[in-house]
């Protein structure tokens, strides 16, 4: 019988900002940056990863007890807090695993400094504008009804962990509501991207694996290909029968792609 790795929860104060985080496992440092939906705190693959990595999972303020402070208005702002976190924990040679908005955060961090970062895997990452003014690079998840948004983000809409929220307690619903408010505050405009980021991507001088769901209708696979191409050492892999969250819809294939990348780049820094 396997015993799941021990999870340590703590709250750190980083330059005035309270950050909740979980740590589990032993080995090289792996920083997991969750998506706008916060699906990633209990991914089954974490148990396996914890055998080789010390996984650090900070919660973006607004996704737990601490609310988003007034002075954090953008992913750019939050990326400084996460860089402070790496300093505080004195993590080096870090593998960053970022999902959607978490991928954007990883890019913001690495464009500022990769001194503590060895490599990154970005899953359905947003954050960059590739198309022209009239191109909708990232579909508007606020404008369409819940069913349509689900259809954009999942190849099989029944796999949406938020398919049915009617069983949520008021407290759970309040937590989810706060997290969505935090995301709206920092992602509404410019919509899920930072116009300056594209011209900073050359600074991301570490191997980056871009992972994409082949059926992602929120950010189409071509967006992922463009991202991999725009990075100095980017590579692209597509996961069939998956939308914006391939780690949810095709967890085995996703885990295989991730492990492949980690093996390929185990010598990085």
């Amino acid at each position: 019988m396997k015993t799941p790795p021990k999870i340590i929860s703590e709250t750190l104060k980083l330059a005035g900002t309270s950050v909740e985080l979980e740590r589990r496992g032993k080995g090289r440092s792996l920083l997991l940056l969750h998506s706008e939906d916060g699906f990633e705190f209990d991914l089954p693959l974490l148990d396996n990863l914890a055998k080789k990595f010390e996984i650090v999972i900070p919660r973006m303020p607004g996704f737990g007890k601490p609310s988003l402070p007034n002075y954090l208005n953008s992913i750019d702002d939050i990326s400084y807090v996460w860089l402070d976190l790496l300093d505080r924990l004195d993590l080096t040679g870090v593998t960053v695993l970022g999902f959607s908005v978490g991928g954007w955060l990883a890019l913001e961090m690495a464009s500022k400094s990769t001194s503590r970062i060895a490599r990154m895997a970005l899953v359905g990452s947003v954050g960059v504008k590739f198309g022209g003014a009239y191109d909708r690079d990232i579909e508007d998840i606020y404008f369409h009804n819940a069913g349509a948004v689900r259809g954009l983000r999942f190849a099989d809409p029944d796999k949406d962990p938020h398919l049915d929220l009617t069983d949520l307690s008021k407290r759970q619903a309040m937590t989810l509501a706060s997290s969505r408010e935090a995301i709206a505050k920092i992602c509404w405009e410019p919509y899920f991207h930072n116009p300056s980021l594209r011209n900073r991507l050359h600074r991301v001088d570490v191997p980056v694996q871009v992972v994409w769901g082949a059926k992602d209708g929120m950010t189409a696979p071509n967006y992922g290909r463009a991202l991999a191409k725009a990075l100095p050492d980017g590579r692209f892999v597509s996961i069939p029968k998956a939308g914006h969250f391939p780690h949810i819809e095709q967890s085995d294939q996703f885990a295989a792609a991730l492990i492949n990348f980690l093996e390929d780049t185990k010598g990085a820094r």
């Binding site: 819940a146 929220l165 509501a177």
Partner: peptide, 20 residues
Amino acid sequence: QHRAPPGYVETSLYADFLSG
């Protein structure tokens, strides 16, 4: 969804909107 973009109404009401 056009009546309740996140952050427009107070959190408690938005939570009720999310949970139906």
